[in-house]
């Protein structure tokens, strides 16, 4: 980038006015932050994943692939992978479907639309906060709101966090509830669909449902792809809910991957092992994202091709 000798001649003047210099100067704060707070830690964590680094003793001896081999003998690790996959596979589709539904309902022309759109965005604003997680914990507690209501209606109460199989659903529900950011993106996408398509469909006599499946969904598919990728990645990194509401219990039934990494690093002092887990996570997430992209050519509609 610094090469262009012809540029030098034409621009002349002071060093700072050269286009490529100005660009780098503008980017400097980001480059500085990225190198110090992202790149260096990332490279270090790769190194530490081959050591037995512990926060307490601060010794880090190289132990080769032992951390990675140990992973496969670790019961909790296996369970946390399964539980995380279950969480992602349920929460992401539900969240996207819900976000699309609400966005679709809010496309009609009404004065209240902006208000509703803001209201539905609120849960995403308070998103991963500790306070919401604590409220959730109370709502689903043995004597919490949901069980109290169920009891007064004469229904059986449910011990949400006492049952290994049930405990993950309140967490899933919390993720689905925070559909706001996907909804906003869907809403923007819906506005971009030319109304002439719908007019043509009206002339052809298509029903509302048919219009949705034959016009809305295909035109929206690139947006769906974007949301799907973003939400999948963020779902894999879910931490707060599991940490605050259930602490991974009962019997590791909500031991999401990020929480397990945290426990290994800061609770059990096995920083090297936790680094190895993070890298396994990176590989798994990359593969899944890649699979989503590869599959996209079968279901994402692009106007240039048709």
């Amino acid at each position: 980038m610094f090469g262009g000798s012809s540029d030098k001649k034409t621009t002349g003047g002071k060093f700072i006015y050269r286009e490529e210099v100005v660009g780098h100067v503008f980017a400097l704060p980001f480059i500085f932050g990225f190198v110090c707070f992202s790149l260096i830690p990332i490279v270090l964590s790769l190194y530490y994943s081959f050591t037995d680094y512990s926060l307490g003793t601060k010794q880090a001896e190289l132990i080769g692939f032992k951390n990675f081999i140990n992973l496969f003998q670790d019961e909790v690790f296996g369970k946390s992978i399964l539980k995380t996959l279950q969480y992602v596979l349920i929460s992401v589709p539900c969240k996207l479907a819900f976000a699309l539904l609400v966005a679709f309902l809010l496309t009609r022309k009404s004065k209240m639309v902006t208000l509703y759109r803001s209201l539905y965005y609120v849960p995403s604003l308070v998103g991963g906060s500790v306070a919401v997680a604590l409220v959730w914990k109370q709502l689903f507690a043995r004597k919490g709101l949901f069980n109290t209501v169920a009891k007064s209606l004469g229904l059986a109460t449910i011990n949400w966090f006492g049952d290994e199989k049930l405990a993950i659903y309140p967490l899933v529900l919390m993720a689905v509830w925070q559909f706001g950011s996907s909804m906003i993106i869907f809403a923007a996408g819906l506005k971009e669909i030319p109304s002439s398509y719908y007019e043509a469909a009206d002339i052809d006599g298509l029903s509302g449902l048919q219009k949705f499946f034959y016009i809305t969904l295909p035109c929206l598919s690139p947006i769906i792809l974007y949301n799907l990728v973003m939400q999948t990645i963020s779902a894999f990194m879910t931490f707060t809910q599991a940490f605050i509401i259930t602490a991974g219990g009962p019997n590791n039934g909500t031991m999401l991957y990020a929480l397990n990494v945290y426990n290994q690093a800061f609770k059990y002092n096995r920083m090297g092992y936790a680094c190895a887990m993070s890298w396994v996570m990176l590989v798994v997430m990359s593969l899944i994202t890649l699979a989503i992209f590869k599959s996209s050519k079968f279901w994402v509609f692009s106007e240039s091709e048709s």
Binding site: N159, F161, A167
Partner: peptide, 8 residues
């Protein structure tokens, strides 16, 4: 108390 109650 079971795990759920203990967590409270």
């Amino acid at each position: 108390p079971d795990a759920g109650a203990s967590a409270e």
